[in-house]
């Protein structure tokens, strides 16, 4: 995507001949998913917002900060409110599942195998005769934990490495970018199938670590782009001219301006990581019983889907709804932070 930035900046580059940045490498110019796309468009949008060419029809006196504006917009956005409430609900379910069910998800009765809904068991029973409702409620924990921890890990690693690469440039940038390329060269599901099958332990943390290892380059790229953009802003040059040191520049001037696209991409990535965990569990390399996980439940329900679709549909619905909530949240935040789309 940095290539696409060049596209929009063709102006100075066309005249000057060469850009300040090194030409991004083959794989680096690639995007990873929609999140990256959205993040990049946000970086561009911020650039536009900082150099408004036309005062348009808006009040030019307005000088509120991006964040205040965004928050004001978000509060009025029904998509944000719905997805936000849904996520709060899911998080509560993940932390205190017993608030929603007193049935033990591991207590199963084979005689009830594949039975439909009955009093006290609204979602019926799965192949092992376990209560589908209880398992669906308890499954939230695995998905949310993997999603949140993997995103936090990938975002921190990515922001740190990408941010430093973008800030200092030079060899550090080259090294980080090439390493990111290498990890990008491995399709994530393929990598999961190979790497996770190697490791005998099937704990949640292994899955989290794997996602962080293959997920950080995406966020590093966004962070790098955002930092480079922020670094070139006039106020940063001004701060530097006034004698601000590197650490002060980074923390006070660049980070706050680079963080918006990272947040957007991370939120959308969170949704996709949850989906990824389920897919890995489905392939048999992610989480393993006795961990209760939507991915495992969907996987084991797949064979009997034609006879007892409810066993698959409830955890699948919960999973999809969770992913949807995070993607919608990311979308809403993106819209709020993107002044161009207002």
């Amino acid at each position: 995507m940095p290539d696409q930035d060049k596209y929009n900046e063709a102006d100075p580059l066309a005249e000057a001949g060469t850009g300040e940045e090194e030409m991004p490498s083959a794989v680096e110019s690639r995007t990873f998913d929609l999140g990256t796309m959205e993040g990049q468009s946000l970086i561009k949008a911020e650039r536009l917002a900082d150099h408004p060419e036309t005062p348009a029809l808006e009040d030019r006196v307005v000088a509120r900060s991006l964040w205040q504006d965004a928050w004001r917009d978000l509060r009025r956005n029904p998509i944000f409110i719905i997805s936000g409430l849904l996520i709060i609900f899911l998080v509560i379910m993940a932390i205190w599942p017993t608030l929603f069910t007193s049935t033990d998800p591991l207590k199963c009765d084979l005689s009830k195998s594949q039975a439909g809904a009955e009093s006290g068991h609204p979602f019926g029973f799965d192949n092992q005769g376990c209560d589908v409702y209880a398992r669906t409620v308890h499954g939230a924990r695995a998905s949310i934990t993997v999603g949140v921890c993997a995103t936090a890990g990938a975002a921190l690693t990515g922001t740190l490495l990408g941010g430093l690469a973008g800030f200092f440039g030079g060899w550090l940038d080259s090294v980080v970018s090439r390493i990111a390329d290498i990890f990008f060269g491995i399709p994530i599901l393929l990598g999961g199938l190979v790497f996770l099958s190697v490791i005998p332990s099937q704990s949640i943390w292994i899955v989290v670590a794997f996602i962080v290892v293959l997920g950080w380059p995406q966020l590093a790229r966004i962070a790098r782009g955002a930092v480079i953009t922020a670094k070139q802003q006039d106020y940063v040059t001004a701060a530097r001219a006034l004698g601000a040191g590197n650490s002060r520049l980074m923390l006070r001037h660049i980070l706050p301006n680079a963080v918006a696209p990272i947040i957007v991409v991370a939120t959308i990535a969170l949704g996709t990581y949850i989906s990824l965990e389920a897919t890995l569990s489905f392939l048999g390399v992610g989480l393993k019983p006795p961990t209760v996980s939507w991915g495992i439940d969907i996987s084991s329900a797949a064979d009997t889907f034609r006879n007892a679709p409810h066993i698959l549909l409830y955890p699948a619905g919960a999973l999809s709804l969770t992913v949807l909530a995070f993607i919608m949240l990311g979308d809403a935040v993106r819209d709020a932070l993107d002044p161009k789309l207002r």
């Binding site: 989906s275 389920a278 969907i298 999809s320 949807l324």
Partner: peptide, 22 residues
């Protein structure tokens, strides 16, 4: 598109296989 992105491929796969195929 939002719905499609949110539902994991393997779920879509089984559901479509059942509905359209079976």
């Amino acid at each position: 598109t939002l719905v499609v992105i949110s539902i994991p491929t393997f779920v879509t796969g089984y559901v479509l296989q059942y509905l359209i195929g079976v």
